[in-house]
Structure formats: C-alpha cells, structure tokens
Design a protein around this nucleic acid. Structure first.
Lengths: 356, 356
DNA sequence: CTCCGTTGCTAAATCGGGTTAGCGCCGATA
DNA sequence: TATCGGCGCTAACCCGATTTAGCAACGGAG
C-alpha cells in the first residue's frame, strides 16, 4: 500500500556513491573527511529529490538513543493542569526534535513499573516523573537507568534527581501581599488550611508552603492571620461549609482561599450571607483554574504555572542528558517556577470600620 | 553509569546455545522447531535470571513496527476533555502493549506536517488524528502511509479513514426527552443555538446535531421549541447575556443549554431574575464539564464520553492495523459513541400554570 | 624506479533482534 | 556399506543507519 520508505542506500545509489559516502555527506562530516564538492552536491541533490529522511529507529539501534522522552504521571486526566503541563513539555521537546511518550500510573506502583519498563524497552533518552498535585513520591529504582527529572514532586528520600516545582511559598507571600497592598490590616481569614502551620491536609506540600508564605508576608507587616478553617477536601462544597461556619462567629474582611474551587464555595457562602465581593469581603485564591475567570466577580488568584512547569522539566532534563556530568554537583537540585498573580476583580480596600 | 542492557546474546551464552536457538525458544516457536525440553528450560531460566527483555527498537528495525501509535490533536490543553480522551486511548493502547506518542498542532498545518513526519520517522504503527471539538478537518495526505483514525472529527472530503464521534443527535434527543419525562410540554427554550436549524455557530457539528436531536424528540411528542437564543461563543458570559435577554420577553419553564458553561451563565441570569432552579425553571445541558457538579443545584447534563471516545478510537485503529483488509468495505465508517445522561438536580416537573 | 604521503572514496563491522537455509548426527533401511 | 530421513541445533543474512579501518590512484621526492 504505502511506497517503501527511501533509505540511505537509495540515495547512495541515485548519487552513484557508497552508503558510507552518502552518510558522511548527510551528517555534515563530508568536509572534514575530504569528500569532493562534486560528490557532495550529487548526494545532497539525490537526498532532496528522493525526499530522504533518516530512519530514527535504525539510528536508535546504532546509537542507543531514540530522540524520545517519557512523561509518566500519576494522572493525566483529573484536571486541566495536566494538559497544560504536558503541553509545555511537548513544545519544549519538539523544539529539540524530541517526541514524548505519555503514560499514567494512577498511583499504582506495579503499573508504574511496567510503564517504565515499556519506556526503557523503547530506549527513551530521558524520563519525567510527574505528579498532578505537589507531593513527595517514592522514586522507582529503575529511574537511575536514564536521566530523569521529578515534576511537581519531591523524592521521599534523598536522590540525585533534580526536581521542578511551583514556588508555593512565594505564592503564599503574593496572596498575602496583594491584600496588604489593598490596605487590609486585619480580619484576614484562611479557608482550606490554617491558621496554625499544622492545620493542613495530609500530604499536601502546597498547603504547607502556601501557609508558610502567607504567615511570613503578614508577619513582615507586623500582622497575623485572624483565623482559618480547614477543609477535608479542597472542593467547592467544603469551601462553602467552611466559610459558612466561619461567618457564624466572625466578620472577615478578606479571605485567602487555598484554591479556586474552595473560593467558588466561599463566594456562595458570602452571597448567602448577603455579603458582597469585593466591597464587603476581598477574596484571593490559588491555582487560576478556568473557573476563576468564570465566576463573578472574577477571582484574583495566584496561578499554578503548569505550562512553564512542563517546559522547565524538559529544560532541566536536557541539561541532564547533554550534561558532561561536570555539573554533577548540581544533581538533586530543586528548581522553583514562579507562580504569577492574576489580578482580577475580587479584591478591594477594606470597608470603613462602621459595623466593626 | 547504567549497566548495559541484557541482550539475546547474553541469554544465549548463559544457556550455552546459539542466539538463534534462544530466539526460537523465547518467541515460543521452539516447540514446532523441535528444540529439546532441556535446552528450552536452560534458555528460559537464563532469560529469567538475567531479566532479559527484548529490545523493541531492534525488533522495530527488523519488522518495521514499533508497538507505538501516534495521537495528534489540535490542542491537548484547552479543556479537561482532551485529558480524558488521551486517558482512554492510553489505557486501550497499553492493554495491547502499545505506547502513545502525543503531539499537538494548534491548528497549524505546517506543524501538523512536521509532527506526522516525526512520527513516521519513528515508525508508528498507526495514527489517531483528534480534534478537541467536533468538526470537519482537512486530512493530510501523509495519513495514508499507516492505518489511521479520525477522532471527534469528520473528513472534509470522502476518505477511507474511519471516524469516531460522540452521538450528538441522540444526545439532543435525550436532553429533550428528560424534560418530556418530567412533564414539560411547553415553554422549552434553547440557549446557545436555535430555535431554527440554521441558528448555530459556524463549524460546530455538535450544535447542528444536538439541535436536530432536540427538535426530533420534541416533534415526536407533537411539540415544538418555544424559542431560542444563539451565543457568539459558548462561554458563561454569553449564556448569562442570552438568558437575560430571553427573560425580558419570555417566561421559560425549561432551558436546554448547549453546554455546561452556558448553563452556568444561565443559572446566574435566572438567579438574578429571582427564578429558582428547578422549581421555576428546569435546566438541562451538554458536556458534563466538572463545573456541572459544582454549581447548585447540580446540573443534569448529557455527557461527552471523552474517555470512551479515546478507547474507541484505539479499538477501531487496531481493527485497521490487524485487519486482513478483507473488511475494506468497512473503511470510511463513522462510529458513534453514546453520550450518557447524568441525572442530577436541575430538572423538576413544570410549575402549575398560575403565573402563566 | 621505488617509496611515501595525500586525496577521495569504500568495504566491512556494528547495533539486537528475527528468519531462512542447512549442517552434523543418529538409527533404520536397502 | 551406502542411502535416507528425522532430529536438534546453528551459521549467516536481513533491517538502516554509523563508524572504523583501509584501499586505489596520483604526484613528488629521493
């Protein structure tokens, strides 16, 4: 059905030279190995006319490479998150002529093993091990076979693998600062975690780090968090319940919600209580989920830079692949990607303290 | 750094036989080619002890295959949609021992060409060409080189390629029927398209087909659409505007929104007008975006079966790959995947016609 | 006239498997 | 004793590229 692929041998024959010569010319080493201008031109023209493309599989067999990297995540589907991360990785890889194998483990260690095996069988040149929410993971021992990078994850034990993570502490600072800049001094409550540093969901690195950043920025201004409510899960209904609960005993002037879904629930609780965002209560959040620009007023939030995380992971990986190992001292390094603030409509100066 | 991979030669040496014999045993053809039990056991044990795994790259060079399929979409990142579709494809492929190359074109024809080329260079065994919203696409001519399937897309010209699509017409019928079952007879309005068959956004196959299904189901019950409002884009703000506009002149008893984002806007317009969902107005929608179960009352919607679409595309593709071409008459076939109804809380019987 | 160095190219090995053709040995038969 | 056939295994080639080692032709020097 499909016409057989054009091979190097075809080009060589068309140019009237040996395969060796054709290979030399096409790999650019013709000059240094004294191939004549005449032959060089003949080979190049033949390759062009026949539309020759080297077979990467063959090169792979010879060189042990595949111009391919494996992207293994625990879940690609749970959120838009993953899509953007993959997109970033995809583009960064493509710019270097690399393709991406995608795999997902769903947290199953056996599946992970099989997947990594399948990728090794295909001689991937590098691996990205990604988690869809920031957390610590157990690094499979087969990861040492090729260069690898952890994405959105930290190793549970010291490893030489570099890691790429969002800068959550700075994000916490940003969320707090945007309220400070608007003039808020007190009545700042947290929804989703806090107020204490130990009031966080299990295993959530993001919660801990955001909380640290928030407390730090407020502390620098000589202020403190007025209070907080934890949520068993960061979903709208828990945000609604937590905010409702808070409103029974307190009159917040600003809420820092630990993600946009919680903020969505908080919006509803505030609305139910007859409070206006942002005139009565300012709201700032994290993630920049699409929902953040759909709800009214549009939500000011500190964005998870998924696209950039994906790109950065590939950049770091290529550093490992191409690295002359001279920079082995850089291994195990943790790269933090900035989380940008998306200024929208949910923050205003605090109301005059009439109803105190 | 990494210990060299175990090759067939290693196994053969360990078992004290030739590579040929080892290959024969491991490929299961030992029996028919009269390899002795003794030798067979020795080879199998050696392979097991050395943890031998055949190098797929090498096999690929020999056989021209790669146990890999390429998944090319216009965008992987714009919606959760893509994630689930890829997940379905991923799992179906994995069950057959295949991996997936992911690529995205962003609608750029040149990028698409390069991507398909890169995949051909890696000898993919099949291709899935996916669109993130149902539409007609121009099929690149290089698609004929290997088996291929269109996913969520129709060819703009007749091709022998099979296509996999959601069953939007039946989805339209389901949306209408769920209202009929609740007792609705009149005051059924459309938001996003309609009421006429030509009142649809450009290029949206989904809009056309959903509309056809809705009109059909109502027609069978001897009813008609009471009216409709088109939206320039299917986003919440346009759903809000369209519904607000509708409420100025009409008093709907039920809304069929053309997707969940529109429904989200419609909810807000209804709320602003002091109308309760579902007691005053029932709402049904399409897509089953995560938002549908976040907004209150939770939205009844006809789900886009992304996961199933991905799986089905791979199933159909393997049919092409493994096909003995005897079923060439089946080529160009369009496979429709059912869109399941998610019954939630946004539908109730119509109010008693007091304020009619 | 021989030796040597340069020029310009190519034969052959290699990567790791699959596959085809056939070899050596044994016992049975003519 | 030569022949034949079945058994059990292996040498050798193939896939498509890269790479090493080396060959043939030529000119100039000794």
């Amino acid at each position: 059905m499909s016409p057989r692929r054009v091979t190097l041998a075809d080009v060589a024959k068309a140019a009237g030279v040996s395969r060796t010569t054709a290979s030399l010319v096409l790999s650019g080493r013709g000059r240094e190995l004294r191939i004549s201008q005449d032959v060089e031109q003949r080979v190049l023209r033949a390759a062009d006319e026949l539309q020759y493309r080297p077979n990467i599989v063959s090169v792979g067999l010879r060189t042990g490479t595949s111009r391919t990297i494996g992207f293994v995540s625990d879940t690609v589907a749970t959120s838009r998150l993953a899509g953007d991360m993959i997109k970033g990785a995809l583009e960064a890889a493509r710019e270097r002529g690399f393709m991406l194998f995608i795999g997902e483990t769903e947290g199953d260690a056996e599946l992970e093993r099989l997947l990594l095996q399948a990728m090794h069988d295909r001689q991937v040149d590098g691996l990205i091990l990604a988690s869809m929410f920031t957390r610590t993971i157990k690094v499979p021992k087969s990861m040492t076979a090729v260069p690898a990078v952890l994405l959105n994850a930290l190793p549970d034990q010291p490893t030489p693998l570099p890691a790429v993570l969002p800068d959550e502490v700075e994000a916490g600072r940003r969320a707090a600062r945007v309220l400070l800049e608007a003039g808020h001094r007190d009545g700042i409550y947290l929804i989703g975690a806090g107020p204490g540093v130990r009031d966080v969901p299990r295993e959530s690195v993001a919660a801990v780090e955001r909380l640290v950043g928030i407390r730090e920025a407020l502390g620098e201004a000589g202020l403190k968090v007025a209070g907080g409510r934890t949520c068993p899960d960061w979903q709208p209904e828990y945000g609604l319940a937590a905010t409702r609960d808070l409103l029974e005993t307190a009159r917040p002037r600003a809420l820092i919600c630990f993600n946009d879904r919680i903020a969505m629930g908080a919006y509803q609780a505030l609305d139910d209580a007859g409070l206006n965002v942002p005139d009565d209560v300012s709201v700032v959040s994290f993630d920049d989920h699409p929902i953040a620009s759909w709800i009214r007023p549009r939500l000011t939030t500190v964005a998870l830079p998924h696209y950039e995380l994906g790109r950065k992971a590939v950049d770091v990986l290529f550093n490992e692949i191409g690295g002359d190992r001279a920079d082995a001292d850089r291994s195990g390094e943790v790269h933090r990607v900035p989380m940008p603030l998306r200024r929208r409509e949910s923050i205003a100066p605090p109301p005059a303290p009439l109803s105190g």
